[in-house]
């Protein structure tokens, strides 16, 4: 039985931390209209959480939970959501018009469509980057392990994911 990913110290720390990083990513995205941040930054932070899980548990175990295909569907859904917000503006007059009530400044419920657009971009960028990371991890290590085997060497068990 080959060991997958890193040591149990890293794995347990990841179990503790990864969820908080993901929540922080959502926070950064949803308060983009109040403080520095936004959908792009949130999406990249979400991808960082996924990279942590990937490194700690290995590509195969991560893929069992979340596959590239799922990521791709969610990615496309986020993109469609952003376009839907733009089309909603078109329904109210102009493409990308801010058709929702603007609300009170400095409150969470303000900015009209901006928070929704940030959410769509978070989903889009996050799912897209996570999917690419998954694809890269699985593709790269599969190629490397196969090449090592072909040369008659036993590959590093750390990479056997």
């Amino acid at each position: 039985m080959k060991h997958a990913g890193m040591t149990s110290i890293v794995q347990n720390t990841t179990r503790l931390v990864a969820g908080f990083i993901a929540v922080f990513a959502v926070y950064i995205a949803l308060t983009g209209h109040l403080s520095p941040g936004g959908g792009f930054a949130g999406g990249v932070i979400l991808a960082a959480a996924a990279a942590l899980v990937l490194l700690a548990f290995g590509g195969r175990r991560t893929q069992a939970v979340l596959s590239e295909g799922t990521c791709h569907v969610v990615d496309a859904a986020g993109a469609l959501g952003f376009v839907a917000i733009a089309l909603g503006g078109l329904g109210a007059g102009v493409f990308f018009a801010n058709f929702l009530p603007l609300g009170e400044l400095h409150r969470f419920a303000s900015g009209g469509t901006i928070a929704l657009a940030n959410l769509a971009i978070l989903v889009k960028v996050g799912a897209g980057l996570v999917g690419v990371l998954l694809a890269l991890a699985v593709y790269g290590t599969a190629r490397y392990v196969a090449a090592e085997r072909a040369r008659g060497e036993s590959p590093d068990p750390f990479l056997e994911i």
Binding site: H33, S35, G37, G38, N98, L102, G112, T113, I114
Partner: peptide, 12 residues
């Protein structure tokens, strides 16, 4: 309605 001027420009 966005307090963050960057987001007002970027998403509106």
């Amino acid at each position: 309605g966005a307090a963050n001027a960057v987001m007002a420009v970027l998403l509106d």
